[in-house]
Design a protein around this nucleic acid. Sequence first.
DNA 1: GCCATCATGTAATTAGTTACATGATTAG
DNA 2: CTAATCATGTAACTAATTACATGATGGC
Lengths: 170, 170
Amino acid sequence: MSLAHALLGLLADHPGTGYELRQRFEVSLRSAWYASHSQIYPELARLEARGLVEVVARGARGSKTWAVTDAGRDELRRWLVETEPNRDVRNEPGLRAFLVFLLDAADRRRVLQAELEEVRGRLASLDEIAARLDGLDRPATFAPVVDLGQRVDAVVEAWLREQLAAADEG
Amino acid sequence: MSLAHALLGLLADHPGTGYELRQRFEVSLRSAWYASHSQIYPELARLEARGLVEVVARGARGSKTWAVTDAGRDELRRWLVETEPNRDVRNEPGLRAFLVFLLDAADRRRVLQAELEEVRGRLASLDEIAARLDGLDRPATFAPVVDLGQRVDAVVEAWLREQLAAADEG
DNA sequence: GCCATCATGTAATTAGTTACATGATTAG
DNA sequence: CTAATCATGTAACTAATTACATGATGGC
């Protein structure tokens, strides 16, 4: 179960509330993992019971700021270095990339075009993020992964353009 | 739930048994979706109840060959053309790509090196698959997706080499 | 005062994993 | 004859989604 380690990693980068962690899943970690608040809150409680995270501050509205403990850092390191990654893939856009070739040319064009727009939008926001990170004094921890995202999406964009061209003439 | 549509798509390409579908999840569809037999058999039964697939042959060892019905083809098309892809991502190697930057240089090198070997192995088998598809008379339905996989993995391989070099000097 | 956002939780359901269970066929 | 592979299922458990539920704070 990787949610636990995603949370440990986010908190190892810097402490935060459950609410704020959910936002980080939506922005920085978006391309790798996602979790909703109804999964995050119970998981933080379980991690606390295992001594891997702790509440370091309580603020307004009953908010709790969580931080990773030394045991949590150990567990994160152990997981990254000593365990085999689970490579089972479940990626709906990827599945659709396969299945789109079962459609006739007109339908295929529609689906590919929509996907092209999606990827271009994502590239635009990755460019923004990269520019923002470039402006910082210290390099951000996750900056190289933004770079990887840009390169992968550039490849996907080119592929979509080619498949669209093929659907247009074919 | 995309498992249903993955099965409809595989059967739309050509009919097969549950056992054989599981193998297709492991080879052709590997980079996009995975499902175990304990998920496939009940799902085929549910799809049959909905009239989207049917048994077209019974063979040795109680095997059933399934095929997609017209209603199943309609449902597959409807899903591909008319529904928004679910873009929630849960990708453990992707998550690890983020978290690896929280490790010290020595640990990071270890993890990146292991990943580099993994990607190179995958690239080698994609090359084999591409060569095999090239030898066929008719182009295979899913050939363009193999091409996409090769391009994406090439980008990932280059990125891993760069991050390894950075960890070596840093 | 009111609306957006912050902030946290639980319950019911569905999806997916791991373990249990069985047996037929075929190649060597 | 025997081991590998083909072939199908169910049960118990864990993970994830969707829906329900509540309330505080801060800016305007």
